[in-house]
Write a protein that binds this DNA or RNA. Structure first.
Length: 727
RNA sequence: GGGCGGUUAGCUCAGUUGGUAGAGCAUCUCAUUGACGUUGAGAGGGUCACAGGUUCGAAUCCUGUAUCGCCCACCA
């Protein structure tokens, strides 16, 4: 027996070495697995971590979860492929670097210029990429590094351009003047999903535009009223019926306005005065009303810096100050009828905290309700050549089960989200990311990668929303748009496990992109997982200072223990409270296994694998066989926590506490048949315990396996169910 | 405003199709040079949030209530 078993298990001395051996073996790459060409594939793409910093416990959990699934399927005889990658995360990364530069050098991005900033962000991204990848390795993740992808590398750039071009040609990507979410602080548009609603108290002002204006109007955004073109009332509202259709010319706060009274069913007669001042350029709902009634929409009174551009006394003021100025004017004129404090949800930018200013802007959009002819489709319910919308494709993919979501509640959330989906604004006014492949010269517009022939072409200065490239991920990582062997063999992928936070942001958009470009689901099963929280149930956050570095945990307890601490104890989908004492407990468990191994190795030296088992031992053998079968079902159905706990319980409280204790008596006895049978049994039971635990605790199980079966191939590629033979 | 969840032992959570409530940690008692003290044997501890209903039988299914939480949202 190896001397190392005389000391407690030492993860530090084991894990890095074992990982290197695995990596050297090439088995992380399914192409080099034994009998690779006849195996059914099982594919997972790693949700690419942002290159903004370091790995946190959420990543550690996600990695553990996916690795356990990948390892299980590899042991079940599948060509298991798990593709690593990282995400450039346009806004997040640029914002991080800009902040650093501002802090260290006191310079803004405009001081540096586009080229220099992009270079600096790229540099930063490269650094954090290296940090992150080394951390992922320490978790034991069996990723195929030969297929590593980065959202800004050449292959992915090509995929992004091709995807854009095809959708542009199909009329699904268009440029339009629309109300967008403008973040005055970050100086960019953001998507609906990057908005956080904050409840605040606001004042609801009730006022009249002028002394003889017939309808009082209520609003919280008094300053925008200098941009009004109409007042909308409900068509059935008896109070105002007689005024509908009339136009009133007023001078409001030094600004001449021409206000038409229109009737629109969107207006809630119960709210405020039942009349809505229509400001088309600064409110989505008003924009829509203006569209329906053919009102002018070009009356812009607020600029990108949230300052007033209107003439008169509000000119140049910040919106907040302008609001007060208008209120003051109304008071002076005796037009302010009421002030009431109400609670209101304010839209703020997730990234910068800036208050969103709705502004009409020329932006790029993906039209989710635009009909197109889908050239090819494998998704049940949608036939090749059908005329459909992206929304319909997204809905059908999940309804038909092409994408299965075993967690019913998330399916409901998804469908509900689709229902409320608007066109997706994909342009961002930042510099780091995929630049929009569109060129302008006068009124000419061309979509292509490089500048067209001739002089005078300028490229669109915006870059794409980071989710545009991430949503191609399941197939861009497999070499698309080339029709690669990988794409044929490994797509649709098998399994995807994102946090529920990004179900709409990412999952649904992968379904959109994969549906349009390949006519396929991006993955067969989605298991949404929960968030890792601290012991008190709070989110980990920088401001709370409650962050835990997974690497610190690994140094202290080993990766196996950390993985078990995250996987056991909570079902996939519910939040996890991270508890260090739990991790410590699983470190003890790794040591327990180590000592089981020590006992078994000592007692079973030179054991003969062909020894027939006694009746009693056969029963013990069948007991574990049944458990392994049960546990396999748990892994199969993503009940990792149950698999982990069952194996834990068997190893410690059945094998160690009872069977080994009992064996001490048996082995001390004179009965040769009983002792040889028992030795073979113990050897076999330990081997299978290692097998059942390997997906969750890969390192310690592999290490023991190496001593238990010195001539066998890696445990990592051992097959399940096992043949139960002794080497 | 719309949607979706949670509520089970002191704590963290399991409980797959309804069949006498489980684990880990914590607590208490006992054991001891035994593969392992990172140990072993045992104990206490729960009206499964509440109220109705379906059923021979409900933590599990249905209805309602309370409470905590999450997601979505263009009520000015």
């Amino acid at each position: 027996m190896d001397e190392k078993f005389l000391k407690p298990y030492d993860p530090g001395a084991t894990e890095v070495r074992v990982y290197n051996e695995w990596e050297k073996s090439g088995y992380f790459n399914p192409d080099t697995l034994p009998d690779a060409d006849v195996k059914e594939s099982f594919t997972v793409v790693l949700p690419p971590p942002n290159v903004t910093g370091v790995l946190h416990l959420g990543h550690a959990y996600e990695d553990s979860l996916q690795d356990s699934i990948i390892r299980f399927n590899r042991m079940r005889g599948k060509a298991a492929l798990w593709i690593p990658g990282t995400d450039s995360a346009a806004i997040a990364t640029q914002a991080r670097v800009e902040k650093n530069i501002q802090k260290e050098e006191g310079k803004s991005r405009h001081d540096l210029g586009r080229e220099e900033l992009v270079r600096r962000v790229g540099e930063f991204a490269k650094e954090s990429e290296e940090t992150i990848l080394s951390q992922v390795r320490r978790m034991g993740a069996s990723l195929d590094w030969s297929r590593y992808a980065y959202t800004l590398d050449d292959t992915r750039n090509k995929a992004v351009f091709t995807a854009f071009k095809r959708m542009y040609d199909a009329g699904l990507i268009y440029r339009g003047n629309r109300i967008v979410n403008w973040d005055p602080k970050g100086q960019t548009t953001i998507s609906d999903d990057e908005i956080v609603h904050e409840e605040r108290t606001a004042t609801l002002y009730t006022f009249k535009y002028s002394k003889d204006f017939p309808i009082p109007v209520a609003t919280t955004r008094l300053e925008t009223k200098v941009g009004d073109v109409a007042v909308a009332v409900h068509p059935d509202d008896a109070r105002y019926k007689e005024f509908v259709g009339k136009t009133y010319d007023v001078v409001f706060c030094d600004v001449p306005l021409s206000i038409r009274i229109v009737a629109d069913t969107e207006v809630d007669p119960e709210f405020g005065t039942g009349a809505l001042g229509v400001t088309p350029a600064h409110s989505q709902i008003d924009w829509d009303i203006a569209t329906r009634h053919d009102l002018p929409k070009d009356r812009i009174v607020i600029n990108e810096y949230a300052k007033m551009t209107a003439q008169g006394r509000v000119s140049g003021l910040k919106v907040g100050d302008a609001r007060e100025a208008v209120a003051q004017w109304l008071r002076e004129e005796g037009l302010l009828l009421a002030e009431e404090s109400i609670s209101q949800n304010v839209s703020t930018a997730e990234r910068t905290g800036g208050i969103i200013e709705p502004l009409p802007k020329l932006q790029w959009f993906v039209g989710v309700d635009t009909p197109f002819v889908i050239p090819y489709s494998e998704i049940p319910g949608i036939k090749s050549g059908d005329t459909v919308t992206l929304k319909e494709v997204m809905r059908a993919a999940v309804e038909s089960g092409a994408v299965s979501m075993p967690q019913e509640n998330f399916k409901k959330i998804y469908q509900h989200w689709i229902t409320n989906l608007h066109d997706w604004c994909i342009s961002r006014q930042i510099w780091f990311g995929h630049r929009i492949p569109v060129w302008y010269r006068g009124t000419e517009v061309v979509c292509q990668e490089e500048a067209p022939e001739g002089d005078g072409w300028t490229q669109d200065c915006d870059v794409l929303d980071t989710w545009f490239s991430s949503s191609l991920w399941t197939f861009s990582t497999l070499g698309w748009p080339e029709q690669t062997e990988d794409l044929k063999k490994f797509h649709p992928t098998s399994f995807m496990s994102p946090a529920y936070e990004i179900l709409p942001l990412w999952v649904s958009r992968m379904i959109l992109m994969s549906g349009f470009h390949l006519g396929q689901a991006p993955f067969k099963t989605v298991m949404i997982h929960g968030l890792v929280r601290d012991a008190k149930g709070r989110k980990f956050s920088k401001s709370l200072g409650n962050g835990i570095d997974p690497i610190e945990m690994i140094d202290k307890y080993g990766a196996d223990a950390l993985r078990m601490g995250l996987l056991a104890g909570a079902a996939v989908g519910s939040d996890i409270r991270f508890d260090e004492s739990k991790v410590k407990g699983y470190k003890n468990f790794a040591n327990k296994l180590w000592n089981i191994a020590r006992y078994v190795l000592t007692e079973t030296e030179g054991v003969d694998s062909t020894t027939p088992l006694t009746k009693a031992d056969t029963a013990l053998r069948s007991e574990l066989n049944a458990i392994l079968e049960d546990v396999a079902g748990d892994y199969e159905n993503y009940r990792i926590h149950l698999a982990a706990e069952k194996m834990y319980h068997y190893a410690w409280h059945r094998l160690a506490d009872e069977i080994i204790e009992d064996s001490k008596t048996v082995l001390a006895g004179e009965d040769i048949e009983a002792t040889t049978s028992r030795k073979a049994l113990l050897h076999g039971l330990l081997a299978d315990v290692l097998l059942g635990l390997h997906p969750c605790m890969p390192f310690v199980t592999e290490e023991i396996w190496g001593s238990l079966k010195p001539n066998a191939p890696f445990l990592m590629i051992s097959q399940w169910p096992p043949s139960s033979s002794v080497e």
